[in-house]
Write a protein that binds this DNA or RNA. Structure first.
Lengths: 221, 221
DNA sequence: TGTACATCAGTGAACGCGCGTTCACTGATGTAC
DNA sequence: TGTACATCAGTGAACGCGCGTTCACTGATGTAC
């Protein structure tokens, strides 16, 4: 699993405790949302004094940023793994939903309501565009057989725009139709998923599965 | 504007101060998100002592709940007004976006990351379904000329599901195709809008207008 | 194998802060005769 | 029009709390000779 040879016992212990702190942090976030995260509460839960945590994280913000980073990494892994096992766009969509439902607050940490003024570190932005890259790959192969929309089609104008504004996919050779598909994947699935996770469908008597699947069926169009 | 005849000066003053408290509250939410709202801070900003606010709101939660209520009302008004002036689904979509961009945090208070454990009072749920009702009206008239999807169509299965699960539109005579359109309106526009407001498109070199308009063009399909 | 020293995890006290909320009170505004 | 009383807005002190964070310190663990 890990390169254990170079790890001293102390390092191993350190890594283990860092991991446990994060676990507790996720539990707190699940229970009260990200704003309710408290270092002292985590320490108490672990049977330690508050200041002890400063051996492992230099501040509360530091911990939260690392949690966000982990969330992005976890999502990127999920998408990469699904793609590596040959999943098409719909398959990636299913993987995304499974990942989101596993821990809704983790999903919201990535795509939820932003804290005004917070700016993600650059390396997180990098992971985000890596995720986009995986989407583009799948969108590209999905589009191999597809046609370009004709002039009257509602997508024609969007593709024209994307053909000229593709900085976000600068180092990816995807065709405009693939850019469109990747973006649709993102915005449409996020639309259903975020409303589902926020509980807006409960009480409506709707099956989120059906809504989501229905969007998945549209993806390859 | 208001029924001023029955209002005593005291009542007028009271209403005015309540309104100012809410205004300051919105400013704070815009600056630091809903979790950062503090009664004491509002009072200080208004040149009053903290406890004074308890003449106007019985607790912090009470104030927040009222802000959420106002947000729902404001959105319902916006949609109703647009519908009353003859807007079609796309028109409602544009009204929704204008409303959301006017105050992103207000939008997120309605559709953003939920606080685990928070349950909206029933009257707020009522307004939410009123908004749905307005959507259904527009979706119904948009569908007057539209066809039912054939068996192979990706929407066929969703409509079949909606035909049998329509509690959420129980007192509305909308056809399944209209239910589908109303739901799509909601989930797809929310998808683009929430990502836009959360800033996920900035730095990508994309024009959110184009993305949103492109979804609007799909609505009547 | 044993001793001397350095490293580092964790503690407890403390600082300063802001929070929501309660309470007894002052003073101004409105109401009744 | 003037007086007596009731209503109500707002204050200041106080309570209890939890927060993030710093600091000097203890004691255990690891390292070097």
């Amino acid at each position: 699993m890990t390169v254990a040879g170079k790890e001293t016992p102390r390092e191993r212990y350190r890594a283990q405790l860092r991991a446990e702190i994060k676990e507790r942090a996720w539990e707190q976030i699940a229970a009260a949302g990200a704003p309710g995260l408290s270092l002292n509460a985590i320490a108490k839960q672990m049977g330690m004094s508050g200041p002890a945590l400063y051996r492992y994280f230099s501040s509360r913000d530091d911990l939260i940023t690392e949690l966000i980073r982990d969330a992005y990494h976890s999502l990127a892994d999920t998408i990469r793994t699904a793609a590596a096992s040959g999943a098409d766009l719909a398959g990636l969509g299913r993987a995304l939903r499974a990942w989101a439902r596993e821990d809704p607050q983790r999903y919201f940490l990535v795509y939820g309501t932003p804290v005004p003024g917070y700016r993600a570190p650059d390396d997180i932005t990098m992971i985000a565009s890596e995720i986009m890259g995986a989407l583009l790959d799948a969108a590209q192969s999905a589009g191999a057989a597809a046609t370009t929309p004709s002039d009257g089609h509602p997508d024609a104008r969007l593709e024209a725009h994307l053909a000229e504004h593709r900085q976000w996919a600068a180092d990816h050779p995807a065709a405009p139709a693939a850019l469109r598909r990747a973006l649709r994947f993102w915005t449409r699935l996020h639309g259903v998923l975020s409303l589902e996770l926020a509980g807006h469908f409960t009480g409506m008597g709707l099956d989120p599965d059906e809504l989501y699947d229905s969007e998945l069926r549209h993806l390859t169009q």
